[in-house]
Every structure is written in C-alpha cells, then in structure tokens.
Design a protein around this nucleic acid. Structure first.
Lengths: 259, 259
DNA sequence: GAGTGGTCTAGACCACTGA
DNA sequence: CAGTGGTCTAGACCACTCG
C-alpha cells in the first residue's frame, strides 16, 4: 500500500546531496534489510529466537509481504537469519552443529570430522601490542584478552591457537569460564558477551614450527605447519577477534570450496 | 498461464515411484533451472553470449516471467550466468578479470594482486596413475594430460603447479598452445575444448619442499610450502581437472573468506 | 524510445509444522 | 486446524543501456 510511489515516508535514498554522485537509488527491500539488521544488532530478538512473521513485518514497515521476503532472503543468504518452513524465521546462532563447519575448516584426511578436545593453556589481560591493536582497530595499549589453547582430535594435539579479543567487549572472561562452557567458543561469545561473529577473513601460509609450538603440538621444531590468521567481524564489519592458528596437517587438511 | 494448477504438462516431480519416499515435490522454477542448465551444458549459448530475455524464456517454457526470474537468479548466484541490467543475461566466462580472483587465491602480502608470468615446463600425455584416475573418475591407465608449470610474480617464482586433465576431453593440447594463449588457462579450456570449470574443492596442507620443487622455486629443500590440491568440477559435478600446487608463502598468502 | 533487467504489489494456492 | 514460509501469477512502474 505504501510506497506504491517513490518511497516517501521511508528511508531516503543514500548519497549526500551536493556531491557529484548520482542520487544512488536504494530499493525498498534494501532499506528493510537495514532496519532488520539494526534490530538484530540491538538485540531486539536473541540468537535462536524467532523474529516476527513476514506478514507482521510487512505491516510494521508498511510494505508488501514480497518486499519483506526479499529482504529476509538476503539476510538468510548472509547467514544472519535461518528460515524454517512452517515454523518461522530465526536469528542464526553459533550454538548449532551446522554452523561449526563454516568456521572450522580443518578435516581429517580419512573419516568424518569429529569433535575436538579443548585445552586452555592461558587466558590473560594485557595491553595490545601495536600489530594486534591495528588489526582490531584499537589504540595501541588498549586492553585485550589473550587466549592460548590447543585442540586435539582423538587425543592427538593438532591445533595451537592464539586469540586476541578487545578487552572492552569481553569483561570477565576467564580460563575457567572458557573451560566450563559446553559448546563452541563463538556460542559463549554470543550468549555471554553479546558479540556475534558474522564473517571472517583468513590469511594462510606455510611456516616452520618453532620450539614452543613444536612442544605443544608434540612435533620436532622445523616441522611445516599451516599458519592461519583469522580476523573475525561482527555487524558493520567491525573486527572483534584476531586469531593466529598453527595447524599440524600431517593427517588433517584445510578444506576449501571455490565457487 | 500454464501451471496455474499442479504443473501437469511440465516435468514430473522427482522421486522414483515405489520407493518409500514421499513424492518429493519439485517447484517449477527448479525445473526451469534444470532446463536452462541443460541448454548451457549443450552449448546452446556460448560463454560470454547473451541468453534470451526473461520474457522470451517465459514464453518458451510457458511460465510467468517471475518464475524464470527466480531460476535465473539462482543460476547467477551459482556463477553460471551474469546479469547486466539494461543489457541482458550472459553466460559466465573465465575470460574475465573478475573471475580470476575466484580461483587464484594467492595474494601478495602488500600491494595489489598483479598478473602472473607463466612458464610451462612440461606437457605430456600418459596413462593415469591410480590415484589420479580415482580422483578424476577415470579407469586406471586411461589417457591423461599432465602439465607442469611455474607462476612468477614480479619475476620471482612462487607457484609450482602439476595439473592432470582427462585425455579424452583435451585432445591436441600442447605446451605450445598453452604458451601462445593470451588469458587465463580456464579461458582456453572453455574456448578450445568446451570444458567449463564451475566450481572446485581444495585441500590445503603445509609440506617441506623436496629437492625438485626447491630448485624450480629457487628455495632450499625443506622450506615450508603450502600444498594446494584442487579438484575442479564441471556441470553435474563431474571432475575434469586435478591440480597439485606448491606455493611459496614467504611474501604471499592464501586468502579465504568465511561466511 | 525500445528493450533489458530490477522493484513492488496483490492475491491465490501449496507444503510444512505443531497444537 | 491455524499459522508459517514457499511458489506462482499478473501487472505496473523504475533504472539502465544503447542506438
């Protein structure tokens, strides 16, 4: 009913007036998408909960169901929402099996990917070194939480992770809370600290194990290891985690799909 | 007009009769998608060419424009088609700059990804060893083409690739044709041999350079290298290329996006 | 201006879920 | 059975490209 003509009451087309650019037409469903994303970010609906039905949202935003549908479709493609026919549309959560494999790309050469045993070696608060600060978009010297852990598969240590988190967002995170939590670490982050990892960028290299890493992974120094540096981002592409992992790829590999 | 009632004249819902499964409802747009894919596979429209307009396809298949649109939308998402507003819908081609970066994931640590210099060391026909045959879904002993090449960036060798292709599909492929061709190798494959790479699966490891690889890449034996094994697939997920690459990641990295 | 894809609407009906 | 998302249609209008 509304917006059968140029979206008047709705969000204005982007593009600052006065600059040389064209008005930058922005379709209605994009604006709806932005509005829903804001609600997600603000926590109007919690991870795992259902959001209002398409009809309700259409009424709320004064657009047709089809327009809301297209907005939700794209948010589902972006893994922010999950559609379930007959039940509703739900806020995506890391506390699900399926979601794990999107972020843990290491797979055994033979056999099914199995659950990992986690061992937390360290969890401390410190002032961010300059490279960490730069990556996390902090000021050098800001507080960060550093976590060091080892992942084992079938009893054998395979992954050594060093993780840095902005201290501001993760107040009260301790090794104990990490150890006690059942389920994936990103599940804890979203449940306890309200920080949702949306996507991540990884840089992968081959390096030689140094003495420290070798010891923790039970390998001689010099063994080739996969170095995986991950920057995790939340809403608005804001960086909220830097992770440097060393993977023993003797009997596991990093799987990737090009499409 | 047609199919306002259960799609009668159209493709029947999948599901073998007699088995215990439900009839397995298949939506109209999915059937259209299959039909378009068949035409692509059969070469009705060549890479880079425009396919008929949505209106024309709707008329041909006797469905509404919206249904064709949804089919094309998904094919565009799968990178089989490319939509260009105001111009038409085109068959995706590897002879484009944009497509390169989908398959070449190695990036310099600083600066923009630049073009690679290619040097072909070898190109021969031989009988497939059993592991290669298995990966390519051939019989052990079937003819395959093996290519060995080195990629250099700014004059420094960085990548050593061993590539195996089914001999059946690549008759007449020689080192000379590879060297002479301007543009990406997958561009040559689709233009000269009608083989289109749709997607690929990669397995990544860290390994130590052996003497041979070390020499070709100008590195001491034992240097950690990224091992990238790629299986490329065409329509129907049929494997058509096996590639084993060794990457020197001293000043480059493999970038990946998790989402 | 004609033709293309892109957006938006309104309404009908279908498939799936759970009370 | 009611309520959800999923499909399909028909028609209007908009944005973009090119002759």
């Amino acid at each position: 009913m509304a917006a059968a003509v140029p979206p008047s009451g709705a969000v204005a087309p982007a593009g600052r007036p006065g600059d040389g650019d064209a008005p930058a037409f922005s379709p209605l469903y994009q604006q709806i998408k932005t509005l829903i994303t804001r609600s997600l970010e603000a926590g109007e609906w919690r991870p795992g909960e259902a959001i209002p039905s398409e009809m309700e949202l259409a009424a709320r935003f004064k657009v047709s169901q089809g327009t809301v549908r297209k907005a939700i479709d794209e948010l589902a493609t972006d893994n922010l929402l999950v559609r379930r026919q007959g039940k509703g549309t739900f806020v995506a959560t890391h506390a699900e099996q399926k979601v794990q494999f999107r972020f843990l790309r290491l797979t055994p050469d033979d056999g099914e990917p199995a659950g990992a045993q986690r061992r937390f070696i360290d969890c401390r608060r410190l002032r961010a070194p300059s490279d960490i600060a730069r990556a996390l978009d902090l000021k050098s010297g800001d507080a960060v939480v550093q976590i060091r852990r080892v992942l084992s598969f079938r009893g054998a240590p395979v992954v050594l992770d060093d993780i840095w988190l902005p201290g501001q967002l993760f107040k009260g995170l301790t090794a104990e809370r990490l150890s006690d939590y059942r389920g994936p670490m990103y599940g804890l982050f979203e449940a306890e600290f309200g920080v949702r990892m949306i996507r991540a960028e990884e840089k992968i290299r081959a390096v030689a194990a140094d003495a420290g890493a070798g010891e923790l992974l039970g390998l001689p120094a010099g063994t080739p290891l996969l170095s995986v540096e991950r920057l995790s981002l939340t809403y608005g592409d804001k960086p909220v985690e830097l992770r440097r992992g060393l993977y023993n790829t003797a009997s596991h590999h990093y799987r990737n799909e090009l499409s």
